[in-house]
Design a protein around this nucleic acid. Sequence first.
DNA 1: ATCAAAGTTTGACAGCCATCGTACTTCTGC
DNA 2: GCAGAAGTACGATGGCTGTCAAACTTTGAT
Lengths: 109, 109
Amino acid sequence: MRRMGRTPPHPEVSQFDLQQVLEALVDPVRRSIVTQLDDAAEDLACGTFDIPVSKSTATHHFKVLREAGLIRQYYVGTSRMNALRRADMDKAFPGLLDALTTPQAKGAR
Amino acid sequence: MRRMGRTPPHPEVSQFDLQQVLEALVDPVRRSIVTQLDDAAEDLACGTFDIPVSKSTATHHFKVLREAGLIRQYYVGTSRMNALRRADMDKAFPGLLDALTTPQAKGAR
DNA sequence: ATCAAAGTTTGACAGCCATCGTACTTCTGC
DNA sequence: GCAGAAGTACGATGGCTGTCAAACTTTGAT
């Protein structure tokens, strides 16, 4: 039995790629995850998000967000916690997350 | 012979849709068009852009950008001119275009 | 009138990606 | 130990979309 990756790989800020970040943010489900994290201002377990997809699809979305550098993931018991890497994103692409977490942007559909 | 649409339809600012704008901006070719327009600070004809696609594909990209509200198009002779709708975009989604026209964002790949 | 320049339109095609179900793993509590 | 909870991994699939070539349209110049 191989061990499950206990701590999945996270990119450094210097490795952030704009194309990859935009591809992550263009999906409505993933953008919803980001805004829910932003609203909560607190780390959230995968299962606590309000998203209209199956668990396996959710796992996929969290992976895309993590690999783009948008969230940091760590285990607490069987729960996988998710933290928004806002400071890191701001360093790499200033203003981008701000523009998408504006009430205006959130309200827009 | 039906007339070619002399002035193609442009959405109003109130109709801008964040999802549509992001889908427009996620394509590298289209984002390149936007940054070239931003750099030029001047309207440019379709043919003057430096993009690695065929003419018909270019037409497609310009259409996507126009329908999202990112550019305004108008004819001058046989040339179709393109103008960045920065003010309109700033009104609808403040900070978004700024974040993508930063030297940091442009340099990133 | 003709011709070339600049785009558009249409149809076809290929690759990607969001989605799901199922089987599996890991941890907690009893 | 065992059951359940919380996710993950793995195919498989369906739809979307970026791409092109070819034929066409409109305009400007000769």
